[in-house]
């Protein structure tokens, strides 16, 4: 019984964060087929626009920022419901909320893992979809950066909605209705950054504003999220 002597060691907050993220990644690895759904949804949604709006390259180039951002927003929204679903149903959430460590940190780790799994692949794939939409080469940095900064903010804000609705039996579209209005500023600045970059205008300012939204949601959303989860489990 070697481990007995270790009874006084307290896991550091970083250890708890890391273990929590790797656990969620391991769970996702076991359900790999489900994990690809948001990505496929993203690709399909973007592919629908040229079919509906016509293949005119100039027209598509104008629409590209809006299409990519709305598709990213919708795929984020689609997987939001699953963020705490299993944990709620199997009781893990109760264990998290009664943990001796700062609950804010643990739920932040969950959102981080969720972002890595659901949004990071979108950012990678957006490069190829940009080609499909005839996005000029000089607009790629703006597109990738704006998605990299904007999607974590969407995950964080959306997590509050997911936390609020996780205990409801008939959620339907409620989560989307709660969260979508909150995504508006992110959508405006995100799409605006890409748009400005296409016409070679200043795209750093909207990106910085997007960064400000990310910082704000990173510092405030976890606390709101813990409050939402506590209410759901009450």
């Amino acid at each position: 019984m070697v481990r007995t002597s270790a009874s006084a060691r307290k896991p550091s907050p970083w250890t708890v964060f890391r273990v929590s993220v790797t656990r969620d990644l391991a769970v996702a690895w076991r359900h790999l087929h489900e994990g690809t759904h948001p990505l496929l949804f993203f690709i399909l949604t973007v592919s629908l626009f040229p079919l509906a709006a016509g293949p005119d390259p100039v027209f598509l180039r104008q629409l590209a920022p809006g299409i990519l951002w709305i598709a990213a927003l919708l795929s984020t929204l689609l997987v939001l419901d699953s963020l705490f679903r299993t944990e709620y149903e199997d009781g893990t959430l109760e264990q998290i909320l009664t943990s001796a460590h700062p609950v804010v940190l643990i739920v932040l780790a969950k959102v981080a893992a969720h972002w890595i799994l659901s949004a990071l692949p979108l950012v990678a794939v957006s490069v190829f979809l940009g080609m499909m939409l005839n996005l000029p080469a000089h607009a790629y940095p703006a597109m990738v950066l704006s998605l990299l900064v904007g999607t974590p903010a969407m995950s964080l804000i959306g997590a509050i909605g997911a936390g609020l609705t996780v205990g409801l039996r008939r959620r339907g579209l409620l989560l989307a209705l709660i969260v979508m209005p909150l995504y508006v500023p992110i959508l405006i600045f995100g799409a605006h950054a890409v748009q400005s970059s296409i016409v070679q205008a200043n795209w750093v300012s909207p990106l910085l504003l997007l960064g400000a939204i990310l910082v704000l949601s990173l510092t405030l959303a976890p606390f709101a999220l813990v409050a939402a989860l506590k209410t759901s489990l009450h």
Partner: peptide
């Protein structure tokens, strides 16, 4: 009533994660 175990994970993985949520390292392996 809900046991806190994730279906996809093994008992080893579940207990490892849940052990880290404790105030200090569990006293038993």
């Amino acid at each position: 009533h809900r046991n806190g175990l994730n279906d996809a994970l093994t008992p080893r993985e579940n207990l490892h994660y849940l052990g880290k949520l404790e105030a200090s390292e569990p006293w038993l392996g």
